[in-house]
Amino acid sequence: MSGLQIPMEHVLALAGLLFSCGLMGLMLRRNIIFMLMSLEVMLNAVALAFVAAGAQWGQADGQIIFLLILSVAAAEVAVGLGLVLQIQRRFKTLDMDQARRLRG
């Protein structure tokens, strides 16, 4: 192994931190844009963990999964932003606490 050696634990801790930040953002923010952004953060945290794990064991799988996550995230953003536009049109707001028509 060459290059900058960062201990696995640090990387995983960073990934966990990022994931928690995203999760907190998802749970606490009311704006749908911010919620999507938090989701992106969470996805990237997971992707980071995969890359670190791939580097640790010298396997390409981690990077393949990273590419997969990247494309999934791109697709998700595409669909998500489309929905956001619709939400904005329909409810005239991006506050998710206001858009609760599915209440049982």
Binding site: L26, M27, L28, R29, R30, I32, M35, M96, D97, A99, R100, R101, L102, R103, G104
Partner: peptide, 13 residues
């Protein structure tokens, strides 16, 4: 059980 379905996205998350 209907009471659980609040329509609040954040609550679901």
């Amino acid at each position: 059980l209907c009471a659980l379905q609040t329509g609040q996205l954040r609550w679901y998350a």
